[in-house]
Simulated scan of single mutants.
Amino acid sequence: MIKKIISLSILLTIGGILLLSFTTKEKADFSSYSTAGLDLYYVAPNFNEIEDEGATYVTPELGKSYLGFKEAVAFKESRGDYGVVNQFGYMGKYQFGKGTLDLIGVKNISRNDFLANPVLQEKAFYAYLSRNKWVLRRDIKWFVGRTMNGVEVTESGILAAAHLGGPNAVKRYLRSGGVDGFADAFGTTIRYYMKRFGGYDTSYVVPNRKAKVEL
């Protein structure tokens, strides 16, 4: 029994010596590893934005035209359905709220009449774009072409984001360098709309401070 104990002790001693002999006494040198110059910024999209990441909102025939832009926005807002009302009361193909409709001159009209009038909805969309383009004219001049939060700022992206959250929210976002963000009731952000609807030709939209729908 004593011999077995002695033998085991010798084996453990030899094993310890061998282990130590393979252990480096030098400290690891990490000086050659640096993050200098690397873009470490990353924005994690919310679940709603991940779900839409691979979606296609426009037919190839429409491309990046103004028609392509408005149909892409409509698809995201309502799947292009003129008659839909969401759980928050936003109406139609472009999901207008009552306050916005009042702002562009669509007053004293019932919800059902608005939903049943595609021509009126199209006029409302253009009028709101036109007004927002005037309100954001300086921001369009200052920020288009820059990259903010990893997304190139374009005029169509700005106008789409203004449709989502209003022009003042877009102003705050741009003028804060993307720090002051906005998300709607579904968690959709200004950054996401700028990315999703960037690069369309919205030169067709004429800025107009007093844009109203002609009924």
Rank of each mutant, 00 (worst) to 15 (best):
M1R: 09
K3A: 08
S7W: 09
G15I: 13
G16Y: 15
L20E: 07
S21E: 08
K25E: 12
K27V: 07
F30W: 10
Y33P: 01
A36H: 13
D39A: 14
L40E: 13
V43T: 10
N46M: 09
D52A: 15
D52T: 08
A55D: 14
T56F: 06
Y57G: 03
E61I: 03
L67H: 00
F69T: 00
E71L: 00
A74Q: 03
K76L: 11
K76H: 14
R79P: 01
R79C: 04
D81H: 03
G83S: 13
V85A: 11
G89L: 07
Y90I: 03
M91N: 01
M91L: 07
V106R: 03
K107V: 11
N108P: 01
N112Q: 05
P118A: 11
V119P: 03
V119C: 06
Q121I: 03
A124Q: 03
A127H: 01
Y128T: 06
S130K: 01
K141D: 04
W142L: 12
V144C: 10
T147R: 03
M148D: 02
G150L: 09
V153W: 01
E155Y: 01
S156C: 08
A162E: 05
G166C: 09
P167D: 06
A169V: 03
R175P: 05
D180K: 10
A185N: 07
G187A: 14
T189D: 08
R191M: 02
R191W: 02
R191S: 06
K195L: 10
D201H: 05
Y204T: 04
V205M: 00
V205K: 00
V206Y: 07
V206A: 11
P207D: 12
R209M: 12
K210I: 05
A211Q: 04
